[in-house]
Design a protein around this nucleic acid. Structure first.
Lengths: 158, 158
DNA sequence: GCATGAAATTTCAAGGTTGAAATATTGCAC
DNA sequence: GTGCAATATTTCAACCTTGAAATTTCATGC
């Protein structure tokens, strides 16, 4: 019988640890996402994708193109079409053709949308604090930094 | 002009840091999930939810109830019904009524399903290593531990 | 000016997701 | 044994999601 390389037996395998990390990461997001979904529905009769769109628009008072939204939110073009349709119907968002380019439409928050979003954002913050409150500041900073590095590497390679 | 409390100006606010953590966590999962989805589709003509179900069943050779699956995967009952339907149609999964209880059905991997899953799992491992390879062993361990604690706390409180 | 490719968006089919209501079956109190 | 709550699952409408094809408009080379 031949010994396996030290890496695979004696020491914790980095690959296995990263696989475990991914599984826990996914599970944590799903737990939190599920709870957020429930509460957005319960308290604001809204959804997470709608909240994401409102948050993106809130940061850009001059408005965004459909394609800006889809790039920023990491979702497909077709997806954004439907979500915006519903937000417009609800009066939270406005659409207008871009000056001199009838292909593109500029999407903005309405006054109602802005008011509504700030209410939702306030609740959102307290909910996240409720969920993650037991994570120490030090842990949050480390974790956050690791994830930021991960994302930078990702974007360099994709 | 009055000074704000030290906590909110001089020192990084723990709440803000945890909010940032959540945003990065969500973004990281979405990036990885999106890439996994594409590759599962491309290489196996499958999807992430199907892969999740196969993985759960692989760990339980004696089979699982529909409700076991829905609890374990954090998805609704109705959701599982549809996914299992398709997996059965594809021949990867079998269903049978539980002995003496015609309400419950026991779901298992077929031989084909098991073979198929091990292929997918192997690819999955190399993909995750590709995505997270730059996360050091130490960082992976810390992050993973933090997320585990988070989940334990969560489950105690819910 | 016109053709032709690029850019911005929509449409569509297939699938995933929830939560609530409906169905079917079981177990239990009496 | 009957009634009734509990259990396991399905059904359904509404929404989210993707990726590919189609549509509309713009820009550019000729």
């Amino acid at each position: 019988m031949v010994s396996a390389p030290l890496d695979t037996i004696e020491r914790p395998s980095a690959a296995k640890e990263r696989l475990r990390l991914w599984i826990r990461l996914l599970r944590a997001s799903r737990l939190i996402e599920g709870e957020l979904r429930e509460r957005l529905k319960r308290d604001f009769d809204s959804t997470l994708p709608r909240f994401d769109v409102l948050a993106a628009l809130y940061r850009q008072p001059d408005g965004m193109l459909m394609s800006d939204l889809s790039r920023f939110l990491l979702v497909s073009n077709g997806n954004v079409t439907g979500i915006i349709e519903r937000l417009v119907k609800d009066g939270l968002v406005s659409r207008a053709a871009r000056e001199g380019d009838r292909r593109a439409s500029i999407v903005k928050l309405t006054a109602t949308g802005e008011r509504r979003f700030t209410e939702m954002a306030a609740a959102h913050e307290t909910w996240i604090e409720e969920f993650l409150g037991e994570v120490s500041l030090a842990d949050a900073e480390r974790l956050s930094a690791t994830l930021k590095t991960f994302r930078s590497n990702w974007e360099d390679g994709h």
